[in-house]
């Protein structure tokens, strides 16, 4: 029931995403515009060539990041875990940039896959630090480690961009944290990639729930923490890699979505993951719409909008943590 309501909300946001923008489209015209294709109609070109790819990109990246955040928070038992904050986004972006610089600019589909090794390595670093394997890291340590990893990777990105002129082009196109270039990405393949990650997370959901009780207790319940962690790692890698390939590094979505999803669905993991996917997609689309409308004719990248939203949420969560609670 609650999921249905969330789904209805997402559909409303999707409609808004098609209508709103520098060139407004009247709701009454929408059905006609979606109907038969007329390549000379500017409104239809706006809708089909620009807004629809953007919409799809927002759905993919938002759902994937929401799920990735949910999985990371369950595994690290840390409400401040987020693929952006902990450097997984930066890892994906750096490996894309490095690969594109070394191998030359191939087709977009193979370039997209270059995000996966970086995302995987960075997620591995996060999990080995705070994944219940080596004891709890605590929110401060984990967040600071994320800051360090992010700073290091971003410095490497600056270095690369300054060293090789062609990486600047790759950087501008791929690493902007925006949905604006969505039409030029291999969206179908990336949607499949993200879907694999989301389905894997859903399959792991009961075991993630057990794991979030703590490694020893999970083992007592018959769960193999090692296998669950490996599965979670793969799910986070697929989701984050796909999201970064679609939209570039977008931070804070994985931080903001899980507490909302938990508030709506309680502690049940499978429902929580579905809610996180719906909420993530809706929030990212809203951020993109707001960014389009705020300073016309210019626009603000969706990643900047989520960061503006995420900063206060981070502070709110940080303030509620008690220093005794493994801080």
């Amino acid at each position: 029931m609650r999921l249905l309501l969330l789904g209805a909300g997402l559909v409303a946001i999707m409609l808004l995403a098609m209508l709103a923008g520098a060139r407004g489209i009247a709701p009454a015209d929408l059905a006609a515009l979606l109907g038969h294709y007329d390549p000379t109609d500017p409104a239809q070109i706006t809708l089909l060539e620009i807004r629809l790819p953007r919409l799809v990109a927002g759905l993919i990246a938002g759902a994937a990041l929401g799920v990735a955040g949910m999985v990371m928070q369950a595994v690290t038992r840390n409400p401040l875990a987020d693929p952006g904050l902990l450097g997984v986004n930066a890892g994906a972006a750096f490996s894309l940039l490095l690969g594109a610089t070394l191998l030359g600019r191939g087709d977009a589909a193979s370039l997209s896959l270059l995000t996966l090794p970086g995302a995987g390595l960075a997620a591995l670093a996060v999990f080995s630090l705070g994944g219940g394997l080596a004891g709890d890291a605590g929110p401060v340590r984990l967040t600071l480690a994320g800051v360090a990893l992010n700073a290091f990777l971003l410095s490497l990105v600056s270095l690369l961009v300054l060293l090789r002129r062609e990486s600047l082009d790759v950087f501008r196109f791929w690493v902007a944290g925006s949905l604006a270039e969505a039409g030029q990405r291999p969206l179908t393949g990336l949607a499949l990639l993200a879907l694999c990650g989301i389905v894997l997370a859903l399959l792991l959901a009961p075991r993630l729930e057990a794991l979030s009780l703590g490694g020893a207790l999970a083992r007592g319940l018959g769960t193999h923490p090692g296998r669950v962690l490996a599965g979670a790692l793969l799910a986070v890698t697929l989701c984050t890699g796909a999201a970064v390939a679609v939209a570039g590094p977008i931070a804070f979505l994985g931080l903001v979505v899980p507490p909302l999803a938990r508030r709506i669905m309680g502690t049940e993991m499978r429902g929580g993951l579905i809610a996180a996917a719906l909420l993530g997609a809706g929030l990212l689309l809203l951020a993109d719409i707001a960014g389009r409308l705020l300073i016309p004719p210019g626009e603000i990248r969706a990643g900047v909008m989520t960061a503006l939203l995420g900063g206060p949420v981070f502070l709110w969560i940080a303030r509620r943590l008690r220093p005794g609670e493994g801080a």
Partner: peptide
């Protein structure tokens, strides 16, 4: 608590960085 202070400081840092990138768009 120093650690809460560091954590809140990180949050304020994230917020100011976001605001800086927002302004740079303008």
């Amino acid at each position: 608590a120093p650690l809460v202070l560091v954590l809140v400081g990180l949050g304020v840092g994230f917020l100011t960085q976001a605001a800086s990138s927002f302004l740079m768009t303008a």
